[in-house]
Amino acid sequence: MARMMYREAVLRTIFEEMERDENVVMLGEDIVGGMGTAGGPEAIGGIWSTSTGLFDKFGGGRVIDTPISESAIIGAANGLALSGKRPIAELMFADFIGVSLDQIWNQMGKFRYMFGGKSKCPAVVRMAYGAGFNAAPQHSQSVHSLLTSMPGLKVVIPSTPADVVGLLRTAIRDDDPVMFLEHKALYGAKGEVPDGDYTIPFGHARLSRAGQDVTIVTCGLMVGFCERVADKLAAEGIGCDVIDLRTTSPLDEEAILDSVEVTGRLIVVDESVPRCSLATDIISLVSEKAFSSLKAPPAMVTPPHTPVPFARELESAYLPSTDKIEAAVRKILAWR
């Protein structure tokens, strides 16, 4: 076991995978930081500190600092992947999928299927997502609902340093394109990481709290929020299952359904906007497949269907909070 920050877990895993497999390459804006300046390469080392030292160790052939050109970054990742490499592309902010969406949606997500299974696209697109920094509408979004809706993509949202390591290893070794979403507010979070070459398979949720009364399904930063609520309510004798999905595509349906069959009550807590979302998707799954187990209407705690506002008061009103989650649990328990 080693204790490390989430961002260190990202960096360490990339480092080890690049050492293990020379086909693993990384590309993105400012990932070297300082190219073409007096300070020289690694003068800064990537704004999230998730690529520091990679250039020095592996060189510019495998650690490619790119111009500001998200379409070409993801497009190049596609070309690399179709040519036998294992690219890790970084989008500095998840919001920038907007600029590169064709390469994600129409290209990487579709190759294997539309080429009749004759190709692989082992690309990982890492991106920093999420609100909480007053970074305003174009730098704060949670894009996993959108990405999960696209066939052909796998979508991974680690909530702890240990999960970063296990899931990122799986992502890099996977032969399909993987969207890897890192919450900005988690980069500094610390946790224990198991030693050795451990991996976490996709589609296996983690039960982070166990209880009999309510099932809370969540992912990413919201996992910690839900755990705090579950711990508080446990002291009052209210038991919550907190299911950290880890991956939204593939989705661990079994973990959700098994839990709801016991509790009869479902709350989805998610940071992405509510329409056509992860929350509506899981509620619809449960309504279809566990209808007879339900003791109360499923509920969701999400932001409203608006862009992420800037001002502190607005952003905190916008985001799910422990208070809102707790209120939702009490409400679902009080139903009828």
Binding site: N134, A136, P137, Q138, H139, P307, P309, F310, A311, R312, E313, L314
Partner: peptide, 15 residues
């Protein structure tokens, strides 16, 4: 981030 700002506090410096 004031409600009296150019964008009512919704956009901030970048917008």
């Amino acid at each position: 981030g004031s409600a009296e700002g150019t964008c009512k506090g919704k956009g901030g410096s970048m917008h």
